[in-house]
Design a protein around this nucleic acid. Sequence first.
DNA 1: CGCAGAATTGATACATCTCAAGCTGGGTGG
DNA 2: CCACCCAGCTTGAGATGTATCAATTCTGCG
Lengths: 248, 248
Amino acid sequence: MLKEKASIIPHECGDCPIRHRAVCARCESDELEQLDQIKYYRSYESGQTLIWSGDTMDFVGSVVSGIATLTQTMEDGRTQMVGLLLPSDFVGRPGRASAAYDVVAVTDIVMCCFRKKPFEEMMARTPHIAQRLLEMTLDELDAAREWMLVLGRKTAREKIASLIAIIARRDATLSKNGTRGLLVFDLPLTREAMADYLGLTLETVSRQVSALKKDGVIELEGKRRVTVPDFNRLLEEAGDDSDGGMLI
Amino acid sequence: MLKEKASIIPHECGDCPIRHRAVCARCESDELEQLDQIKYYRSYESGQTLIWSGDTMDFVGSVVSGIATLTQTMEDGRTQMVGLLLPSDFVGRPGRASAAYDVVAVTDIVMCCFRKKPFEEMMARTPHIAQRLLEMTLDELDAAREWMLVLGRKTAREKIASLIAIIARRDATLSKNGTRGLLVFDLPLTREAMADYLGLTLETVSRQVSALKKDGVIELEGKRRVTVPDFNRLLEEAGDDSDGGMLI
DNA sequence: CGCAGAATTGATACATCTCAAGCTGGGTGG
DNA sequence: CCACCCAGCTTGAGATGTATCAATTCTGCG
């Protein structure tokens, strides 16, 4: 279970990989310096739970690298993923004392953390941070609403296609693999995590992935590496307006 | 279909019913005066679509009275409600040109509108507004995530119980009917709207409402008026931690 | 009164879940 | 180096919850 400890990678904010996408995106260099003084890095291993729902949160922060999930669990064990945290995404809610969700590392992760109190104080006097956080929160709200349509109204096949399309799109924007028409990427999630994302069982996920493969919508190399030969076809399968499918 | 035109009710902000819950909640009196100058009221009738998805939005605003829904629709007609707008809720996204969802009046509605451009300008120089909007957006994001658990993992019966619990709670906080232990309120939604909220068909909604009634979890007076004799029982049926059920 | 929209109820079909049995591939220890 | 092991995944067969299609029955209102 234990893996080699992920190395802690301290940065200057200046050459931080998420510098222009995270909460600090709009900060001027003097503001960045202030942030620099209250920040610290922390790394977690794949599988580790960073935060338990109900825990008191004494920090907030940004995902620098790696992937984590936000999940909610019912008493009887049913779980639903409610957020997928990629590099630059923000964790924690300013003004709230305790965590509302479990945060679990899906891969090894590096976080850029701020102690909550100083961060909140700085936010109060730094509109650039609050503005960016508002923008990010609005984006997340949009994503959550998109997701609600997926959960509430789509079939299992459409759900899988939707998820693959979302991941493909994010991958394209992150890695700038603009070789349109042939997308290749790794699924960062296990079948079980995909099931928790989509409100399905892992068996159904497996079956529908196989079906999409059989029908030529996707190609698989091993269990995780996916090729999408025709992105519009994938969007059709997802039940999405295929016009909205601009890659960038 | 046409009803008597709802009367337009202009207010001084001072005695506005949503004064301390809407985006303007934190504004000082001078800020309020500025808002006063760019605001205008608009009313809509029950059933009317205030905004079509894709429309260019030249205003944003707050619901003053009445109820509206935010819905997404797929090409084949499947629709999912993604937001329920009650008095004080904010409509529109600063910084975005076109609407992402349909907004439909469920009852007659009065909106307090601001032309988008002046509002954005004012927001940029009025932290009180941006702060409040961030807070409201974070609350909506939490609500959306709660809702995702409902959509993804709950049974039809649990979904109905969850929806009734949510409405009961909101009703309790709005009308301060603090007579704990006996909640009475009107369902503001048709069975079809409930179905769109919960990702069900209206037939299933009807069946489950009947079942909850038969089992004594709720009592009905006509189709709409609901009595909840035991709120904790309702929360159990919703699959919720019955501890979290504090009414306020 | 009688109509139209809303809601209920019934019978059946079907998608997804559930339970159960294998498969696969990468890592480990003998 | 091989055999084994185990988590992750696939596949199958049957159970079940919800959708679908189709009548009725309410209810408010002109």
